[in-house]
Design a binder for these strands. Structure first.
Lengths: 242, 242
DNA sequence: TAGTGTGAACAAGTTCACAGCC
DNA sequence: GGCTGTGAACTTGTTCACACTA
Protein backbone atom coordinates (compact mmCIF):
# COMPACT_ATOMS: atom_id res chain seq x y z
CA UNK A 1 0.00 0.00 0.00
CA UNK A 2 2.90 2.35 0.55
CA UNK A 3 5.02 1.69 -2.50
CA UNK A 4 3.81 2.49 -5.95
CA UNK A 5 6.16 3.15 -8.78
CA UNK A 6 4.59 5.71 -11.03
CA UNK A 7 2.13 8.51 -11.50
CA UNK A 8 3.34 12.03 -12.04
CA UNK A 9 2.90 13.08 -8.46
CA UNK A 10 -0.71 13.05 -7.39
CA UNK A 11 -0.98 9.76 -5.58
CA UNK A 12 1.93 10.18 -3.25
CA UNK A 13 0.82 12.49 -0.54
CA UNK A 14 -2.43 13.69 0.81
CA UNK A 15 -5.57 14.60 -1.04
CA UNK A 16 -5.59 18.27 -1.95
CA UNK A 17 -8.80 17.52 -3.78
CA UNK A 18 -11.86 19.66 -3.74
CA UNK A 19 -14.81 18.18 -1.97
CA UNK A 20 -16.47 15.40 -3.95
CA UNK A 21 -20.25 15.18 -4.29
CA UNK A 22 -21.43 12.39 -2.05
CA UNK A 23 -23.05 10.56 -4.91
CA UNK A 24 -19.65 10.39 -6.52
CA UNK A 25 -17.93 9.09 -3.42
CA UNK A 26 -20.38 6.23 -3.22
CA UNK A 27 -19.70 5.29 -6.80
CA UNK A 28 -15.94 5.52 -6.46
CA UNK A 29 -16.11 2.55 -4.12
CA UNK A 30 -17.87 0.62 -6.84
CA UNK A 31 -15.28 1.51 -9.42
CA UNK A 32 -12.60 0.47 -6.99
CA UNK A 33 -14.17 -2.93 -6.73
CA UNK A 34 -14.60 -3.29 -10.45
CA UNK A 35 -10.98 -2.29 -10.99
CA UNK A 36 -9.84 -4.91 -8.55
CA UNK A 37 -11.73 -7.39 -10.67
CA UNK A 38 -9.79 -6.26 -13.71
CA UNK A 39 -6.51 -6.52 -11.87
CA UNK A 40 -7.38 -10.06 -10.88
CA UNK A 41 -7.93 -10.87 -14.54
CA UNK A 42 -4.65 -9.30 -15.49
CA UNK A 43 -6.27 -6.56 -17.52
CA UNK A 44 -4.16 -3.43 -17.63
CA UNK A 45 -6.29 -0.97 -19.52
CA UNK A 46 -9.99 -0.23 -19.57
CA UNK A 47 -12.21 2.11 -21.49
CA UNK A 48 -14.87 4.08 -19.72
CA UNK A 49 -17.41 1.89 -21.47
CA UNK A 50 -15.95 -1.32 -20.11
CA UNK A 51 -15.49 -0.01 -16.62
CA UNK A 52 -18.95 1.51 -16.58
CA UNK A 53 -20.46 -1.74 -17.74
CA UNK A 54 -18.68 -3.68 -15.02
CA UNK A 55 -19.73 -1.13 -12.44
CA UNK A 56 -23.32 -0.91 -13.54
CA UNK A 57 -23.36 2.79 -14.36
CA UNK A 58 -23.48 4.75 -17.59
CA UNK A 59 -20.19 5.64 -19.19
CA UNK A 60 -21.10 9.31 -19.08
CA UNK A 61 -21.49 9.14 -15.34
CA UNK A 62 -18.27 7.26 -14.99
CA UNK A 63 -16.28 9.76 -17.00
CA UNK A 64 -17.79 12.69 -15.20
CA UNK A 65 -17.01 11.11 -11.88
CA UNK A 66 -13.43 10.33 -12.74
CA UNK A 67 -12.88 13.74 -14.25
CA UNK A 68 -13.64 15.23 -10.86
CA UNK A 69 -10.47 13.65 -9.58
CA UNK A 70 -8.36 14.85 -12.44
CA UNK A 71 -7.47 13.64 -15.90
CA UNK A 72 -6.15 10.18 -15.36
CA UNK A 73 -7.21 8.68 -18.65
CA UNK A 74 -5.73 8.87 -22.10
CA UNK A 75 -7.93 10.06 -24.94
CA UNK A 76 -8.47 7.46 -27.56
CA UNK A 77 -7.07 4.80 -25.27
CA UNK A 78 -8.69 4.51 -21.87
CA UNK A 79 -7.53 4.26 -18.28
CA UNK A 80 -4.61 2.36 -16.91
CA UNK A 81 -6.13 0.06 -14.36
CA UNK A 82 -3.34 0.17 -11.86
CA UNK A 83 -2.88 3.89 -12.02
CA UNK A 84 -6.55 4.59 -11.68
CA UNK A 85 -6.74 2.26 -8.73
CA UNK A 86 -4.02 4.24 -6.98
CA UNK A 87 -5.78 7.49 -7.59
CA UNK A 88 -9.14 6.23 -6.44
CA UNK A 89 -7.62 4.81 -3.30
CA UNK A 90 -5.94 8.08 -2.58
CA UNK A 91 -9.11 10.04 -3.19
CA UNK A 92 -11.03 7.84 -0.80
CA UNK A 93 -8.40 8.14 1.89
CA UNK A 94 -7.39 4.52 1.76
CA UNK A 95 -3.73 5.31 1.93
CA UNK A 96 -4.07 5.87 5.62
CA UNK A 97 -4.59 3.02 7.99
CA UNK A 98 -8.01 2.72 9.52
CA UNK A 99 -8.38 0.82 12.74
CA UNK A 100 -11.86 -0.46 13.31
CA UNK A 101 -13.36 -1.52 16.62
CA UNK A 102 -16.48 -3.64 16.52
CA UNK A 103 -18.83 -3.06 19.42
CA UNK A 104 -21.06 -6.04 20.01
CA UNK A 105 -19.88 -9.61 19.60
CA UNK A 106 -23.19 -11.29 18.97
CA UNK A 107 -23.87 -13.21 15.80
CA UNK A 108 -23.49 -10.19 13.62
CA UNK A 109 -20.46 -8.76 15.36
CA UNK A 110 -18.65 -12.06 15.12
CA UNK A 111 -19.60 -12.44 11.49
CA UNK A 112 -18.23 -8.99 10.73
CA UNK A 113 -15.06 -9.59 12.71
CA UNK A 114 -14.34 -12.75 10.78
CA UNK A 115 -15.10 -11.20 7.47
CA UNK A 116 -11.60 -10.39 6.36
CA UNK A 117 -12.46 -9.44 2.81
CA UNK A 118 -11.77 -5.76 2.90
CA UNK A 119 -11.14 -5.72 -0.77
CA UNK A 120 -8.62 -2.95 -0.97
CA UNK A 121 -6.89 -3.33 2.31
CA UNK A 122 -6.50 -0.32 4.55
CA UNK A 123 -8.90 -1.44 7.24
CA UNK A 124 -7.96 -3.50 10.22
CA UNK A 125 -10.26 -4.79 12.91
CA UNK A 126 -8.41 -4.06 16.11
CA UNK A 127 -10.99 -4.84 18.77
CA UNK A 128 -14.20 -6.69 19.38
CA UNK A 129 -16.11 -5.69 22.49
CA UNK A 130 -19.11 -6.98 24.33
CA UNK A 131 -20.73 -6.65 27.72
CA UNK A 132 -21.82 -10.26 28.09
CA UNK A 133 -19.52 -12.09 30.56
CA UNK A 134 -20.25 -15.33 28.74
CA UNK A 135 -18.73 -13.97 25.58
CA UNK A 136 -15.89 -11.87 26.91
CA UNK A 137 -12.63 -13.70 26.48
CA UNK A 138 -13.79 -15.85 23.59
CA UNK A 139 -11.64 -16.00 20.55
CA UNK A 140 -13.13 -14.87 17.29
CA UNK A 141 -10.86 -15.11 14.32
CA UNK A 142 -7.64 -13.40 15.34
CA UNK A 143 -9.27 -11.44 18.10
CA UNK A 144 -10.33 -11.96 21.65
CA UNK A 145 -13.56 -10.42 22.85
CA UNK A 146 -12.84 -7.71 25.39
CA UNK A 147 -15.05 -6.14 28.00
CA UNK A 148 -17.03 -3.19 26.74
CA UNK A 149 -16.88 -1.75 30.23
CA UNK A 150 -13.33 -0.72 29.34
CA UNK A 151 -14.33 0.73 26.03
CA UNK A 152 -12.46 4.00 26.39
CA UNK A 153 -9.25 2.29 27.47
CA UNK A 154 -9.46 -0.26 24.68
CA UNK A 155 -10.04 2.38 22.07
CA UNK A 156 -7.08 4.33 23.36
CA UNK A 157 -4.81 1.34 23.45
CA UNK A 158 -5.73 0.08 20.00
CA UNK A 159 -5.92 3.61 18.59
CA UNK A 160 -9.20 2.71 16.97
CA UNK A 161 -10.45 5.49 14.73
CA UNK A 162 -13.60 3.90 13.40
CA UNK A 163 -16.33 1.99 15.16
CA UNK A 164 -18.84 -0.52 13.96
CA UNK A 165 -21.93 -0.92 16.12
CA UNK A 166 -23.30 -4.44 15.93
CA UNK A 167 -25.70 -4.54 18.82
CA UNK A 168 -29.39 -4.49 19.54
CA UNK A 169 -31.28 -1.27 19.12
CA UNK A 170 -31.74 -0.82 22.81
CA UNK A 171 -28.03 -0.62 23.52
CA UNK A 172 -27.03 1.26 20.42
CA UNK A 173 -27.42 4.89 21.42
CA UNK A 174 -25.50 4.45 24.62
CA UNK A 175 -22.68 2.61 22.90
CA UNK A 176 -22.68 5.27 20.22
CA UNK A 177 -22.26 8.02 22.79
CA UNK A 178 -19.40 6.25 24.48
CA UNK A 179 -17.63 5.57 21.24
CA UNK A 180 -17.88 9.23 20.35
CA UNK A 181 -16.61 10.37 23.70
CA UNK A 182 -13.72 7.99 23.16
CA UNK A 183 -12.82 10.20 20.23
CA UNK A 184 -14.16 8.26 17.26
CA UNK A 185 -15.77 10.36 14.57
CA UNK A 186 -16.66 7.71 11.99
CA UNK A 187 -19.31 5.21 12.90
CA UNK A 188 -21.04 2.48 11.00
CA UNK A 189 -24.16 1.21 12.70
CA UNK A 190 -25.94 -2.05 12.06
CA UNK A 191 -28.39 -1.40 14.84
CA UNK A 192 -32.01 -1.05 13.82
CA UNK A 193 -32.42 2.31 15.52
CA UNK A 194 -32.25 5.95 14.68
CA UNK A 195 -29.11 7.27 16.34
CA UNK A 196 -28.41 10.85 17.23
CA UNK A 197 -24.85 12.05 16.80
CA UNK A 198 -23.31 15.48 17.29
CA UNK A 199 -22.01 17.48 14.35
CA UNK A 200 -18.58 16.48 13.25
CA UNK A 201 -19.33 12.82 13.60
CA UNK A 202 -20.13 10.84 10.50
CA UNK A 203 -22.63 8.08 11.00
CA UNK A 204 -23.66 5.60 8.39
CA UNK A 205 -26.38 3.11 8.92
CA UNK A 206 -27.04 -0.26 7.43
CA UNK A 207 -29.93 -2.44 8.25
CA UNK A 208 -31.81 -5.33 6.79
CA UNK A 209 -35.28 -4.28 7.86
CA UNK A 210 -34.97 -0.98 6.03
CA UNK A 211 -33.64 -2.62 2.93
CA UNK A 212 -36.39 -5.19 2.86
CA UNK A 213 -38.99 -2.50 3.28
CA UNK A 214 -37.62 -0.65 0.30
CA UNK A 215 -37.64 -3.86 -1.71
CA UNK A 216 -41.22 -4.41 -0.62
CA UNK A 217 -42.21 -1.03 -1.95
CA UNK A 218 -40.76 -1.74 -5.36
CA UNK A 219 -42.13 -5.26 -5.49
CA UNK A 220 -45.57 -4.14 -4.47
CA UNK A 221 -45.93 -1.74 -7.31
CA UNK A 222 -45.33 -2.78 -10.86
CA UNK A 223 -41.79 -3.85 -10.14
CA UNK A 224 -39.56 -2.20 -12.71
CA UNK A 225 -37.01 -1.22 -10.09
CA UNK A 226 -33.99 -2.03 -12.14
CA UNK A 227 -30.69 -2.37 -10.42
CA UNK A 228 -29.78 -0.30 -7.44
CA UNK A 229 -26.11 -0.89 -7.33
CA UNK A 230 -24.95 0.54 -4.09
CA UNK A 231 -26.29 2.23 -1.12
CA UNK A 232 -26.16 5.92 -1.22
CA UNK A 233 -28.59 6.70 -3.90
CA UNK A 234 -27.44 3.90 -6.07
CA UNK A 235 -28.00 4.45 -9.71
CA UNK A 236 -30.52 3.87 -12.43
CA UNK A 237 -27.70 2.00 -14.01
CA UNK A 238 -28.56 -0.72 -16.44
CA UNK A 239 -29.32 1.42 -19.43
CA UNK A 240 -32.76 2.79 -18.87
CA UNK A 241 -33.02 4.93 -21.92
CA UNK A 242 -31.18 4.24 -25.15
CA UNK B 1 -52.31 -4.88 12.03
CA UNK B 2 -55.55 -5.60 10.33
CA UNK B 3 -57.97 -3.50 12.28
CA UNK B 4 -57.92 0.22 12.18
CA UNK B 5 -61.01 2.17 12.90
CA UNK B 6 -60.92 5.19 10.70
CA UNK B 7 -59.49 6.81 7.61
CA UNK B 8 -61.82 7.48 4.74
CA UNK B 9 -60.81 4.49 2.72
CA UNK B 10 -57.18 4.65 1.81
CA UNK B 11 -55.53 2.11 4.07
CA UNK B 12 -57.79 -0.80 3.45
CA UNK B 13 -56.87 -2.18 0.10
CA UNK B 14 -53.97 -1.82 -2.23
CA UNK B 15 -51.88 1.19 -2.99
CA UNK B 16 -53.38 3.18 -5.82
CA UNK B 17 -50.69 5.70 -5.10
CA UNK B 18 -48.68 7.48 -7.70
CA UNK B 19 -45.09 6.46 -7.83
CA UNK B 20 -43.02 7.82 -4.97
CA UNK B 21 -39.60 9.38 -5.51
CA UNK B 22 -37.07 6.89 -4.34
CA UNK B 23 -35.53 9.31 -1.89
CA UNK B 24 -38.91 9.50 -0.24
CA UNK B 25 -39.31 5.75 -0.04
CA UNK B 26 -36.03 5.46 1.80
CA UNK B 27 -37.12 8.04 4.33
CA UNK B 28 -40.53 6.51 4.85
CA UNK B 29 -38.83 3.53 6.41
CA UNK B 30 -37.16 5.87 8.84
CA UNK B 31 -40.43 7.54 9.76
CA UNK B 32 -41.96 4.14 10.26
CA UNK B 33 -39.28 3.31 12.75
CA UNK B 34 -39.62 6.60 14.56
CA UNK B 35 -43.38 6.15 14.74
CA UNK B 36 -42.95 2.74 16.25
CA UNK B 37 -40.86 4.41 18.89
CA UNK B 38 -43.71 6.80 19.64
CA UNK B 39 -46.18 3.95 19.82
CA UNK B 40 -43.93 2.21 22.31
CA UNK B 41 -43.98 5.33 24.44
CA UNK B 42 -47.73 5.56 24.21
CA UNK B 43 -47.67 8.85 22.33
CA UNK B 44 -50.71 9.25 20.11
CA UNK B 45 -50.06 12.46 18.29
CA UNK B 46 -46.94 14.03 16.79
CA UNK B 47 -46.17 17.26 15.05
CA UNK B 48 -44.03 17.30 11.97
CA UNK B 49 -41.36 18.97 14.06
CA UNK B 50 -41.29 16.19 16.62
CA UNK B 51 -41.34 13.40 14.09
CA UNK B 52 -38.73 15.09 11.97
CA UNK B 53 -36.49 15.53 14.98
CA UNK B 54 -36.83 11.88 15.91
CA UNK B 55 -36.15 10.83 12.34
CA UNK B 56 -33.20 13.08 11.78
CA UNK B 57 -34.63 15.08 8.90
CA UNK B 58 -35.94 18.61 8.53
CA UNK B 59 -39.60 19.18 9.20
CA UNK B 60 -40.02 20.64 5.74
CA UNK B 61 -38.76 17.44 4.20
CA UNK B 62 -40.97 15.38 6.42
CA UNK B 63 -44.10 17.29 5.53
CA UNK B 64 -43.31 17.24 1.87
CA UNK B 65 -42.73 13.51 2.01
CA UNK B 66 -45.92 12.76 3.86
CA UNK B 67 -47.96 15.02 1.66
CA UNK B 68 -47.02 12.81 -1.25
CA UNK B 69 -49.06 10.05 0.31
CA UNK B 70 -52.05 12.24 0.96
CA UNK B 71 -53.19 14.58 3.67
CA UNK B 72 -53.07 12.50 6.77
CA UNK B 73 -52.33 15.27 9.23
CA UNK B 74 -54.53 17.88 10.83
CA UNK B 75 -53.59 21.50 10.47
CA UNK B 76 -52.86 23.12 13.76
CA UNK B 77 -52.64 19.74 15.42
CA UNK B 78 -50.30 17.19 13.89
CA UNK B 79 -50.44 13.57 12.87
CA UNK B 80 -52.12 10.71 14.63
CA UNK B 81 -49.39 8.22 15.23
CA UNK B 82 -51.39 5.10 14.68
CA UNK B 83 -53.15 6.31 11.61
CA UNK B 84 -49.96 7.52 10.01
CA UNK B 85 -48.32 4.22 10.76
CA UNK B 86 -51.07 2.41 8.91
CA UNK B 87 -50.74 4.65 5.92
CA UNK B 88 -46.98 4.38 5.78
CA UNK B 89 -47.16 0.62 6.03
CA UNK B 90 -49.68 0.50 3.24
CA UNK B 91 -47.61 2.80 1.06
CA UNK B 92 -44.55 0.63 1.51
CA UNK B 93 -46.44 -2.53 0.73
CA UNK B 94 -46.10 -3.99 4.19
CA UNK B 95 -49.68 -5.16 4.26
CA UNK B 96 -48.71 -8.08 2.12
CA UNK B 97 -46.70 -10.94 3.46
CA UNK B 98 -43.16 -11.19 2.31
CA UNK B 99 -41.42 -14.50 2.53
CA UNK B 100 -37.67 -14.21 2.61
CA UNK B 101 -35.20 -16.93 1.80
CA UNK B 102 -31.64 -16.47 2.97
CA UNK B 103 -29.05 -18.00 0.70
CA UNK B 104 -25.84 -18.75 2.55
CA UNK B 105 -25.77 -19.99 6.13
CA UNK B 106 -22.31 -18.85 7.09
CA UNK B 107 -21.76 -16.49 9.97
CA UNK B 108 -23.65 -13.69 8.35
CA UNK B 109 -26.51 -15.79 7.04
CA UNK B 110 -27.06 -17.31 10.44
CA UNK B 111 -26.90 -13.94 12.10
CA UNK B 112 -29.51 -12.59 9.73
CA UNK B 113 -31.74 -15.62 10.14
CA UNK B 114 -31.72 -15.25 13.88
CA UNK B 115 -32.31 -11.56 13.74
CA UNK B 116 -36.04 -11.53 14.26
CA UNK B 117 -36.41 -7.81 14.78
CA UNK B 118 -38.30 -6.90 11.68
CA UNK B 119 -39.77 -3.91 13.38
CA UNK B 120 -43.01 -3.65 11.53
CA UNK B 121 -43.73 -7.26 10.91
CA UNK B 122 -44.61 -8.37 7.43
CA UNK B 123 -41.42 -10.26 6.72
CA UNK B 124 -40.88 -13.89 7.48
CA UNK B 125 -37.71 -15.87 6.94
CA UNK B 126 -38.92 -19.07 5.36
CA UNK B 127 -35.71 -20.76 4.32
CA UNK B 128 -32.01 -20.79 4.95
CA UNK B 129 -29.91 -22.51 2.32
CA UNK B 130 -26.31 -23.53 1.99
CA UNK B 131 -24.19 -25.82 -0.11
CA UNK B 132 -21.86 -26.99 2.64
CA UNK B 133 -22.74 -30.55 3.73
CA UNK B 134 -21.37 -29.79 7.17
CA UNK B 135 -23.94 -27.07 7.66
CA UNK B 136 -26.97 -28.55 5.90
CA UNK B 137 -29.39 -29.91 8.44
CA UNK B 138 -28.22 -27.68 11.27
CA UNK B 139 -30.84 -25.82 13.19
CA UNK B 140 -30.59 -22.06 13.25
CA UNK B 141 -33.26 -20.35 15.24
CA UNK B 142 -36.54 -21.79 14.04
CA UNK B 143 -35.12 -22.98 10.79
CA UNK B 144 -33.18 -25.88 9.48
CA UNK B 145 -30.51 -25.30 6.88
CA UNK B 146 -31.51 -26.86 3.59
CA UNK B 147 -29.45 -27.88 0.61
CA UNK B 148 -28.99 -25.10 -1.89
CA UNK B 149 -28.82 -27.73 -4.60
CA UNK B 150 -32.60 -27.85 -4.32
CA UNK B 151 -32.95 -24.10 -4.41
CA UNK B 152 -35.70 -23.98 -6.99
CA UNK B 153 -37.80 -26.60 -5.23
CA UNK B 154 -37.35 -24.94 -1.87
CA UNK B 155 -38.34 -21.56 -3.21
CA UNK B 156 -41.39 -23.07 -4.80
CA UNK B 157 -42.42 -24.95 -1.69
CA UNK B 158 -41.92 -22.02 0.67
CA UNK B 159 -43.29 -19.56 -1.88
CA UNK B 160 -40.35 -17.28 -1.12
CA UNK B 161 -40.71 -13.95 -2.88
CA UNK B 162 -37.59 -12.22 -1.64
CA UNK B 163 -34.05 -13.45 -1.35
CA UNK B 164 -31.16 -12.36 0.79
CA UNK B 165 -27.73 -13.32 -0.47
CA UNK B 166 -25.29 -13.87 2.36
CA UNK B 167 -22.44 -15.60 0.69
CA UNK B 168 -18.90 -14.93 -0.52
CA UNK B 169 -18.42 -12.82 -3.59
CA UNK B 170 -17.30 -15.75 -5.66
CA UNK B 171 -20.59 -17.60 -5.29
CA UNK B 172 -22.88 -14.60 -5.38
CA UNK B 173 -23.54 -14.13 -9.09
CA UNK B 174 -24.42 -17.75 -9.62
CA UNK B 175 -26.73 -17.83 -6.64
CA UNK B 176 -28.26 -14.59 -7.81
CA UNK B 177 -29.01 -16.06 -11.22
CA UNK B 178 -30.62 -19.15 -9.74
CA UNK B 179 -32.73 -17.14 -7.36
CA UNK B 180 -33.98 -15.05 -10.24
CA UNK B 181 -34.77 -18.04 -12.38
CA UNK B 182 -36.71 -19.38 -9.40
CA UNK B 183 -38.94 -16.38 -9.87
CA UNK B 184 -37.73 -13.95 -7.23
CA UNK B 185 -37.61 -10.35 -8.29
CA UNK B 186 -36.46 -8.66 -5.08
CA UNK B 187 -32.96 -9.37 -3.88
CA UNK B 188 -30.87 -8.02 -1.08
CA UNK B 189 -27.20 -8.84 -1.40
CA UNK B 190 -24.59 -8.74 1.31
CA UNK B 191 -21.96 -10.13 -0.99
CA UNK B 192 -19.03 -7.85 -1.72
CA UNK B 193 -19.44 -8.08 -5.47
CA UNK B 194 -21.07 -6.18 -8.25
CA UNK B 195 -23.99 -8.29 -9.40
CA UNK B 196 -25.68 -8.10 -12.75
CA UNK B 197 -29.43 -8.55 -12.81
CA UNK B 198 -31.91 -8.37 -15.67
CA UNK B 199 -34.46 -5.59 -15.90
CA UNK B 200 -37.49 -6.17 -13.76
CA UNK B 201 -35.44 -7.43 -10.86
CA UNK B 202 -34.73 -5.09 -7.98
CA UNK B 203 -31.39 -5.57 -6.35
CA UNK B 204 -30.17 -3.77 -3.28
CA UNK B 205 -26.71 -4.12 -1.99
CA UNK B 206 -25.27 -3.71 1.46
CA UNK B 207 -21.69 -4.18 2.35
CA UNK B 208 -19.33 -3.21 5.08
CA UNK B 209 -16.29 -2.58 2.92
CA UNK B 210 -18.14 0.01 0.89
CA UNK B 211 -19.48 1.73 3.95
CA UNK B 212 -16.10 1.88 5.61
CA UNK B 213 -14.59 3.32 2.46
CA UNK B 214 -17.17 6.07 2.43
CA UNK B 215 -16.48 6.76 6.07
CA UNK B 216 -12.78 6.87 5.28
CA UNK B 217 -13.37 9.52 2.67
CA UNK B 218 -15.22 11.76 5.07
CA UNK B 219 -12.77 11.18 7.88
CA UNK B 220 -9.81 11.87 5.69
CA UNK B 221 -10.95 15.29 4.69
CA UNK B 222 -11.97 17.85 7.21
CA UNK B 223 -14.59 15.63 8.70
CA UNK B 224 -17.77 17.67 8.82
CA UNK B 225 -19.81 14.87 7.31
CA UNK B 226 -22.62 15.32 9.74
CA UNK B 227 -25.16 12.65 10.11
CA UNK B 228 -26.12 10.42 7.28
CA UNK B 229 -29.35 9.17 8.61
CA UNK B 230 -30.07 6.37 6.25
CA UNK B 231 -28.52 5.37 3.01
CA UNK B 232 -27.87 8.98 2.23
CA UNK B 233 -30.76 9.51 -0.04
CA UNK B 234 -32.61 6.65 -1.53
CA UNK B 235 -32.11 5.67 -5.05
CA UNK B 236 -33.17 7.16 -8.33
CA UNK B 237 -33.37 3.63 -9.54
CA UNK B 238 -36.72 2.77 -10.91
CA UNK B 239 -38.56 4.09 -13.86
CA UNK B 240 -36.61 6.82 -15.50
CA UNK B 241 -38.86 6.61 -18.48
CA UNK B 242 -42.56 5.94 -18.01
C1' DT C 1 -10.13 6.76 -35.13
C1' DA C 2 -11.48 5.64 -30.81
C1' DG C 3 -12.40 7.29 -26.55
C1' DT C 4 -11.62 10.99 -22.82
C1' DG C 5 -13.07 15.37 -20.80
C1' DT C 6 -16.58 18.82 -20.25
C1' DG C 7 -20.03 22.64 -20.96
C1' DA C 8 -24.71 22.97 -21.32
C1' DA C 9 -29.56 20.93 -20.92
C1' DC C 10 -32.26 18.36 -18.05
C1' DA C 11 -34.09 15.94 -13.96
C1' DA C 12 -34.38 14.99 -9.08
C1' DG C 13 -34.28 16.40 -4.46
C1' DT C 14 -34.27 19.95 -0.75
C1' DT C 15 -35.39 24.26 1.46
C1' DC C 16 -38.11 28.39 1.97
C1' DA C 17 -41.91 30.83 3.10
C1' DC C 18 -46.45 31.42 3.38
C1' DA C 19 -51.45 30.38 2.35
C1' DG C 20 -54.99 27.69 4.40
C1' DC C 21 -57.28 25.23 7.98
C1' DC C 22 -58.38 23.54 12.69
C1' DG D 1 -52.08 30.42 17.52
C1' DG D 2 -50.24 26.65 15.81
C1' DC D 3 -49.18 23.49 12.46
C1' DT D 4 -50.05 21.22 7.94
C1' DG D 5 -49.74 21.35 2.92
C1' DT D 6 -47.55 23.15 -1.13
C1' DG D 7 -45.93 26.28 -4.94
C1' DA D 8 -41.74 28.43 -6.12
C1' DA D 9 -36.63 29.10 -5.53
C1' DC D 10 -32.65 26.72 -5.16
C1' DT D 11 -29.27 23.01 -4.97
C1' DT D 12 -27.54 18.67 -6.35
C1' DG D 13 -27.12 15.00 -9.53
C1' DT D 14 -27.50 12.87 -14.36
C1' DT D 15 -27.47 12.77 -19.31
C1' DC D 16 -26.28 14.55 -23.83
C1' DA D 17 -23.43 15.66 -27.36
C1' DC D 18 -19.39 17.18 -29.09
C1' DA D 19 -14.73 19.41 -28.98
C1' DC D 20 -10.34 17.63 -28.31
C1' DT D 21 -6.34 14.74 -28.40
C1' DA D 22 -3.19 10.65 -28.25
Amino acid sequence: MTSHAQSPEGVTGEAPAKRLPSAVVARLTVYLRALNGFVAEGIERVSSDALAEASGVSSATLRKDLSQLGSYGTRGVGYEVDNLLQHLSAALGLTRDWRVAIVGAGNLGRALARYGGFEVRGFEVVALLDTDPEIIGNEVGWLRVTDAANLEAIFRRTRANMAVLALPGSAAQQACDRVISAGVRSILSFAPTILQVPRGVTLRKVDMATELQILAYHAQRGEAGGQTGENEHGEPAAGTAP
